[in-house]
Amino acid sequence: MQNPQLTDDGKLKHLLSIEGLPKKILNQILDTAESFVGVAEREVKKVPLLRGKTVCNLFFENSTRTRTTFEIAAKRLSADVITLNVSTSSQSKGETILDTIDNLTAMHADMFVVRHSQSGAAHMIAKHVAPHIHVINAGDGRHAHPTQGLLDAFTIRRYKPDMHNLRVAIVGDVLHSRVARSEIHALTTLGVPEVRVIAPKTLLPQDVEKLGVHVYHDMREGLKDVDVVMMLRLQNERMAGAMLPSSQEYFKTYGLTQEKLALAKPDAIVLHPGPMNRGVEIDSAVADGTQSVILPQVTYGIAVRMAVMSILAGN
């Protein structure tokens, strides 16, 4: 089965998932992002790499941060940007995703940035679009959020350049998290020797260890001597079913506090993809503390998304 993200000669055609991408391409994206970090600090925050191109942000699911950073990234590359919030309810009234895509293609969009609540939506769109069009997955169901995985890897690389000598813990709702899946693939591909996941059994997928991670249920044990702690967002609806009893109990068992963070290496850094639930998965003292790199993540997110777009556009 050929990876639908790559051209016949192995170049990046779409960015749908980090799984299956060679390390070379991941490094190419991270290195390119490095060169874009400076752009934001200039007087004129623009480069002309996507001039004349139309980037279409297609959000079938709500998002503020991801949508905004994609918009800023495209604008800094001088692209024309259209952002459409297509609520899933209007979808069910008639037009299918592929009809929407066809219409926008007829308006000469060059690149689609897609978010959808269903796993596999971005793959389906990529399979459908004309050959000159590029698709970037901005999050599909529980499956993947590759630019988030990349920006997390980029952030880690900036603070801990020797990726081959790291111990990373991902904490929280891995089962429902596209971010966790993309982080796992990014880190294992980039050569991080030990990736741990820490969660109760109700929030871990069956056979998760086959993704190349070590499973921990006890947070204190799992955080021991790690260099990086990656927290995941916990959706409030998890408390409604039988997944978790209460946010208080979750905070007690899996919330990141200064006391638990002290078990990690003294210079460990803390990441969170946002938006945070303070007092649920993370204590404010940690979120705003010296080890937190949560705001730099947002800044680097723009550079990474610029890198992905410019590489896809052939620069």
């Binding site: 796993s119 596999g120 169901g141 529980r142 499956h143 993947a144 596209r178 997928p205 993704l211």
Partner: peptide
């Protein structure tokens, strides 16, 4: 199927 593939693809599994 609730196994490795569903875990990778983020599909809801049937155990």
């Amino acid at each position: 199927h609730d196994g490795e593939v569903a875990a990778r693809l983020g599909l809801k599994g049937i155990p």
